[in-house]
Simulated scan of single mutants.
Amino acid sequence: MDHFPITRTAFFRFYEELNDFLQEEQRKTTFSYEFIGTPSVKDSIEAIGVPHTEIDVILINGESVDFDYRMQGGEYISVYPVFESFDIISLVHLRSKPLREIRFVVDVNLGKLARKLRLLGFDTMYNNNFKDEEIVKLSLKERRIILTRDKGIFKYRAVTHGYWIRNNDPKKQLTEVVKRMQLENSFEPFIRCSNCNELLNPIDKELIKDRLPKLTFLYVDDFMECKGCRKIYWKGSHYEQICKLIDELKVG
């Protein structure tokens, strides 16, 4: 006599930004999810389409559980994002401790965002040849937050800190990251090269006279040089643009 696998059903509800990953009919409502066997709640959540890096707390029938909880069927499961603001002190946090120093590694589709983050002073690794495996290794080795437009990178179980960028426009992407991670008071502009991410050092303009436009040499006194690619920076039109950008980010 043939035995057919038993299909079980659980009921999920995802909150706030996690709804961005769901089908339209699943958003901001409780929906049923069918499965076979006893998969982990983490595997079930990712099968639905939500990356585990976006999740901080899971409640099953009102009780906090970790990613390894084995599904039995009949559960009512509430899933909350990393930055959801409610009292979760007594619950099981699924993320490792927050990163004390904010550092990023971004995927190959986010080069303009990387440059903007560097202009604000954030240590941001980017290379248009990065493979997913390299990004994950950098994230783990150097404790960097992964910023990506590719949800597939979150299928790596080792990933602990990552964020999927919703917007396509680089300026909106920057605003999204700043607001989502509450970085408004962490800006250190004009300390890092937007080209290669190395720190900038003051340099005497007489030492770089032959590398400057004549009028710039005459009317500007303070210069910074990247210790990596040796690009020269001074307070020109880009300086005013960055100051305006910072004001908009802090107000907006």
Rank of each mutant, 00 (worst) to 15 (best):
D247I: 15
P213L: 09
P39Y: 12
T30P: 01
F130Q: 01
T9I: 13
L174Y: 06
L99P: 00
S40F: 10
V65R: 08
E184L: 09
L99Y: 01
W234V: 00
V136C: 03
L18A: 07
Y126V: 10
Y69A: 04
N197W: 03
I232F: 02
C196Q: 09
V92R: 07
I58K: 02
V92P: 02
T38Y: 14
G49K: 09
R144W: 05
T9S: 11
K151Q: 08
K244Q: 15
D20M: 10
L200G: 05
D107V: 03
L215S: 10
P189R: 11
F11H: 15
F154I: 09
E84W: 02
Y233A: 05
E24Q: 10
N201Y: 10
S44F: 06
S96P: 04
Y126C: 03
G74I: 02
I146Y: 02
G37L: 13
Y219M: 02
K171C: 03
N201Q: 14
F86T: 05
D107P: 01
I203V: 14
L94D: 02
D222L: 09
D222N: 10
F21L: 14
Y76V: 11
A158I: 14
V50R: 11
V105R: 00
D222C: 02
R143I: 00
E133M: 01
Q241D: 12
D247T: 15
V92C: 03
E46F: 11
Q241G: 11
I36G: 06
L200S: 07
V65H: 02
E24V: 08
P81S: 03
K141V: 13
S85V: 11
I191N: 05
Y33R: 12
I60K: 06
G49E: 09
F35S: 12
T29C: 12
Q72Y: 01
L22I: 07
F14W: 09
C193P: 02
F83G: 04
D221P: 00
E101R: 12
F31C: 13
K250I: 14
D132N: 13
T175L: 15
G49S: 13
E34R: 14
E63F: 14
M125D: 10
I146E: 01
S40K: 13
M224R: 11
Y126P: 05
K209R: 14
M224G: 03
K227N: 11
G236D: 07
V50P: 09
T148A: 09
Q26N: 14
S90G: 08
S78R: 03
K141D: 14
T124D: 01
F21R: 12
I6H: 11
G162M: 10
I89C: 02
D132R: 04
C226W: 00
E46H: 13
D210F: 03
K231T: 12
V82T: 07
D150H: 11
K171N: 13
E84D: 08
D247V: 13
G252A: 15
Q26W: 08
